[in-house]
Nucleic acid binder design. Sequence first.
RNA 1: GGCCCGGUAGCUCAGCUGAAUAGAGCAACUGCCUUCUAAGCAGUAGGUCAUUGGUUUGAAUCCAAUCCGGGUCACCA
Length: 633
Amino acid sequence: MGVTTTIKPLITAALKDVYGQDFAEKDLTINTTKPEFEGDYTLVLFSFVKQLRQSPEQIGQAIGQHLATTHPALFQGFNVIKGFLNLVIADAYWLGYLDTSYQDKNPGHQPSNGRKVIVEYSSPNTNKPLHLGHLRNNFLGWSVAEILKQTGHEVFKTAILNDRGIHICKSMAGWKYLSDGATPESTGIKPDHFVGDYYVKAENTIKAQAAELLKALLAGDTSGIEAEADKAEAARLTGIYHQLQGEEGKEKEADKTLDQLKELARKHSPFMKITQQMLIDWENGDPEVRALWFKMNNWVYEGFAETYKVIGSDFDKNYFESETYLLGKEFVEDGLKKGVFYRKPDGSVWIDLTADGLDEKLVLRKDGTSVYITQDIGLADKKYEDFHYDQSLYVIADEQIYHMKVLQLILQKLEKPYADGVLHLSYGMVELPDGRMKTREGNVVDADDIIAELKNVAKAKTEELGKVQDFNPGELNELYDTLALGALKFFLLRVDPKKRMIFNPEESIDFHGFTGPFIQYTHARIRSILRKEEPAAGPRMEETLLPKEKELIVLLEQYSHTLDQARQEQSPSLIANYVFLVAKTYNSFIADHRVLKAESESKKQLRLRISELTGHTIAGAMGLLGIRVPERM
RNA sequence: GGCCCGGUAGCUCAGCUGAAUAGAGCAACUGCCUUCUAAGCAGUAGGUCAUUGGUUUGAAUCCAAUCCGGGUCACCA
């Protein structure tokens, strides 16, 4: 483990030896020493002052002296400035670390800890193609899964395909009535996009019909609505609306009423009715509707498969909502028996979570059909049956924080053994400068589009630089893929997953600075050096380190700590930030020091080893982000 | 309205389990390619860490209030 883990017990021991007092390791504040001071790691002394009744300077001197005399091989020196004890770790320690790790092609790998984790991610709806938000989800889920694997967990990746419901029927109705039998083959359109187009067409039809109906309703004509109850409701709302309209200061209420009317008009638009009927037919197993559903979902899967292949998403098991949406019902009985749920007079079943600071939630409709949360209970149980997980991660956007809280509470109250292992890995939505992406409104950044666009950027930049003229077309294509996906994945993973992010399509994703290609480039430079000469085996000859050499090794030694941190916080962004720092530090290092033409053979060997370790670390860290690193670019 | 999340340089973000003069990248400006790939390196400039109060030897970080932005509280998924 890292050097700070080694140092901490030595410091507590020193405090005990010198002052006879006990301190816990967690009470020690150890930071990396700021570059303007001499030293590698710094112990902050202020917190000891009260208990030890000495000035920080005195404490620093005493502890520093004690450490230097008892562990001269580890501590090369120390200095005390104000309340800080700066410790200089011996070059021998860093060189020793380099010796033992430079050949390790998979740095930071931890042995199995026997913990089983499933990561559910991606989980798309099968009525439209993937967009930028899905990409953030996919990259995050995949990366977190890999980080868990690297830190010794047994990991299974799953997805739940939301393949049924009213939105799916919209695409189906759209195609059935508005396509004239066109197919992905006949049009040459990627099949998931093809289906998505009919979703949009259906939406637009509904919108147009609803607008017309709304106009009629406002004019007092309710003949467009069949159901008597809704007819009356429409008349009532129209009356209220007209009344509110005339009143000063009631604009907000009027708008609200208008929204209710709009919703009613939507519901009763002819195309919406067709769609609703289709959902009923689907649930009743109508063969024709089922066949249509099957055909169109398969088009979508075909399209998804292509995109998943490009972005590198993979799954150990897919769950289909069409197969799981009835699952949770059995637990409703169980919950009623346990007194966790209660039944209202109309027959609907609820849970009261007000004591937990939440609300009353419906778990079963009065007609006996299940709601979203019921299905999730069922799926959680099914997954446990399938995997016997210690932990079940759900990569879902933060708009569902509340819902996931409810799910876990219910599972706990039902006394499910796996309840505490259910964790929501929530992430912020990707937004455009003018707000959220809405497929319905067509303002989305399509996943396939943005990848294609970045590939073009990669191609243009590469051609402009003219460094790979000897690449054959296949190699070039692979390089463009590597760079485009590298830029995109790094862009989405480098920020804290919890935070929502704004993506401005006007400003294309950069290839310079804090970006994937910058790090890929650094790797290519390292490989370029190592292709010319590899480090020789055998004992090390060099005993001292120049500042830039040491800085780099110190940083490389922190990799496993960073990895641990990233696992704990379930945040690939920590790795992205770290690997960028490594690349930057290496670039600075080779700008100052020659490797192949070093001042001596021993220096050359040292720097070859440093280069090798840096290359492995970069490749490993980028691998955890799902980003490939090229040999040349 | 209740609950949850956020507000740090012109822009995008680190730092948030308290510690030295608040850091990167982009954009702007200066230098550096007969030398291992300039997709690079070195440097300049840019900050009332939303506001106010509190805790502390020490606050961007913890607490409270306020302002601003977002999410959520459906017999939707």
